[in-house]
Design a protein around this nucleic acid. Structure first.
Lengths: 204, 204
DNA sequence: GTCTATAACGAGATAGAC
DNA sequence: GTCTATCTCGTTATAGAC
C-alpha cells in the first residue's frame, strides 16, 4: 500500500486521475471558455482545491501547462478520429461524425481548444505555437484523406484540390463555434454545419 | 487661432485626427492582433506618444474604449457595404467584394476585430457584448438579402434558407482568418474563400 | 507533494498639479 | 488635455518549511 503510493509519487506525470490530471481538466475548461490569457493559476487552483505553488510543481511555467494542454487535447481528438477510421462507415457518415466532435464541445459551452488558442496566437509562447500547428496539420491530413476517399467512391462531391476543401471545412467549423457561442445558440453552429455537409455530399 | 484651439478642446470627441482618433487606431490594431485582453493602456499610450492617464481622459474605462472600438469598426464596415450596395454589380461580384473586405484585413496581419472579440466573448464587459452582436446581426441581414437577390436573379445557387447560408459564409470567413494567421499564410484564407464562392455561384 | 509567504511585475484606475 | 505620481489589485513565479 505504502509501496504503491510511493511508486505513484515518484512519477512526474501520474496516469491515474490525480492532481496533475485534474489541473489539466480545469485548465482546459477555462482555456476553452475564457481563453489561455484569461486563465490564471489562481482560478485553476481554486477549483482543483490546491494552491498556486502546487500547480507550479506540476507545470513549472504557464507555457509548459499550455503545451501539455494542447498535446493532451490533440491525442484525445485523434483517438476519436481513429475510432471513426476503424468503423466501416461511408465517407458522408464519417464526415458527420467528425462534425459531431465539434458540436459536442460546443454543447458544453466551450470552443475548440485549438480554435481559441489560434485567436490568441500572437501572444502565445513559442512551444505552444508549434503544438497548435501540429493539431491543425493532422486535422488537415485526416480530412483531406477522407474527402479524397469519398470522391473516389462517389459519395462526396466537391471541386478542386481536396486539401482546399478540407481547409474550408475546418474554417467553417471553427468559425461557426465562435459565432454560435456569442449568440448562446448552438443552432447557429448546426445550420452552418448542415449547410457544409449538404454541399459536399453527393446527391442521391 | 487660439479660439479655434479652444473650440477643439471643448469637445469630448474631436472629429479631426487628433488624440482620441489615434488612440482608437492603435487600440484597434492591438485588439485585432493580440486581442482585447492582450491590449493594455500602457501599450497604446506608448505608441500614441502620450500617458496612460491621458487615455483615461478620453475613454474613462477599458469597457468604454472597447465599445467605441466596436462601434467605429461597425460603422466603417457598413460604409464599405453601402458602397457595394450603391454599385450596379451583380450578386456574385458583390459577394466577392464582401470577401475582399475580410481579405484586406488579413493582409495587414490582423483578424476581424469582431471575430477576435467573439473568441473573448465570455470575458467581455456587457456593453461590448451587445455591440458585438449588432455587428454580426447587421452582417447576417446584409448577406441574407444579397443571397436572396442572387438566387432570384439566378446568379447564385444554394439550398435551404438564405439565412443559414449567410451564417455559414460568415463562419467560414472568420474561421479562415483565424487559421490563416496561425499559419502566417493568407493562401489558407484565399483557398477557403474561393471554395465558398465557387459553391454558391451558379454554373455558367 | 503540498504548503505559506512573498517577490516582482504589470494591469486598470484615480488624484491633483499645470 | 495632458502630466506625474500613486493606489490597488491580480498575475506568474520563487523560496523555504513541512
Amino acid at each position: 500500500m505504502s509501496a504503491l503510493r510511493h511508486e505513484r509519487a515518484s512519477r512526474t506525470q501520474p496516469d491515474d486521475p490525480t492532481t496533475a490530471t485534474r489541473i489539466l481538466d480545469e485548465a482546459e475548461r477555462l482555456a476553452q471558455t475564457r481563453g489561455f490569457n484569461g486563465l490564471s493559476y489562481a482560478d485553476v487552483a481554486a477549483v482543483v482545491g490546491t494552491s498556486k505553488a502546487a500547480l507550479h510543481y506540476h507545470f513549472s511555467t504557464k507555457a509548459d501547462l499550455g503545451r501539455a494542454l494542447i498535446e493532451r487535447y490533440t491525442e484525445r481528438f485523434f483517438t476519436a478520429l481513429d475510432e471513426i477510421e476503424a468503423s466501416d462507415a461511408a465517407a458522408p457518415e464519417r464526415l458527420q461524425r467528425y462534425v459531431r466532435l465539434y458540436a459536442d464541445v460546443l454543447k458544453q459551452d466551450r470552443l475548440c481548444l485549438c480554435g481559441m488558442l489560434a485567436a490568441e496566437y500572437t501572444t502565445l509562447p513559442d512551444p505552444m505555437r508549434g503544438a497548435l500547428r501540429v493539431f491543425f496539420d493532422r486535422n488537415e491530413v485526416w480530412l483531406t484523406d477522407l474527402l479524397e476517399a469519398g470522391r473516389r467512391a462517389g459519395t462526396l462531391r466537391f471541386d478542386g484540390p481536396a486539401r482546399d476543401s478540407a481547409r474550408a471545412l475546418m474554417a467553417v467549423l471553427e468559425g461557426a463555434m465562435l459565432l454560435a457561442r456569442a449568440y448562446g445558440d448552438t443552432k447557429h453552429f448546426d445550420a452552418a454545419a448542415a449547410y457544409l455537409i449538404r454541399e459536399v455530399t453527393a446527391a442521391g
